[in-house]
């Protein structure tokens, strides 16, 4: 019973933190989706422990907590993989953006030179 209470408090806290992060715009809704899902899942599993028992029986885990560990791990892996995808996409966009800025900077410098104004951009 104690464990169950701890689990409920813990997962409620997780959901609260996620909510607060989104409210303060530290976390975009888009990336928060998986986290919210995992929070809700943990909360429902701690309220209805019989679901966990049922799943672990169904899949043949000897101890229900092993099923919990297995699924948490799977969830974390998915989230981390998602983060790697986001990082890759960001670094590609960042590259394109930087190259554009570099080319524009040169154009601005050339234009300034051809108009005889002073050059502010070069250190």
């Amino acid at each position: 019973m104690n464990i169950r209470l701890t689990a409920i408090i813990g997962s409620s806290f997780l959901l609260l933190v996620i909510f607060e992060l989104i409210r303060r715009k530290y976390l975009r809704e888009r990336y928060a989706l998986l986290w919210i899902l995992s929070g809700i899942l943990f909360l429902s599993l701690s309220i209805r422990t019989d679901i966990l028992y049922w799943i672990s029986n169904l899949l043949g885990f000897t101890v229900p907590s092993n099923a919990l560990f297995f699924f948490s791990l799977l969830f974390l892996l998915l989230i981390i993989l998602g983060l790697s995808v986001i990082t890759s996409r960001l670094s590609e966009k960042n590259k394109v953006l930087t190259q554009k800025v570099v080319l524009l900077e040169k154009r601005v410098n050339d234009l300034e030179k051809s108009h005889g104004t002073t050059n502010h951009c070069n250190p």
Binding site: K95, T98, Q99, V101, V102, L103, E105, K106
Partner: peptide, 17 residues
């Protein structure tokens, strides 16, 4: 002529620029 990356971006991005 010179183009300057604001930070080190690696040879691939450098050639592409």
């Amino acid at each position: 002529l010179i183009l300057e990356h604001p930070y080190n971006m690696g040879i691939g991005a450098t050639m592409q620029t």
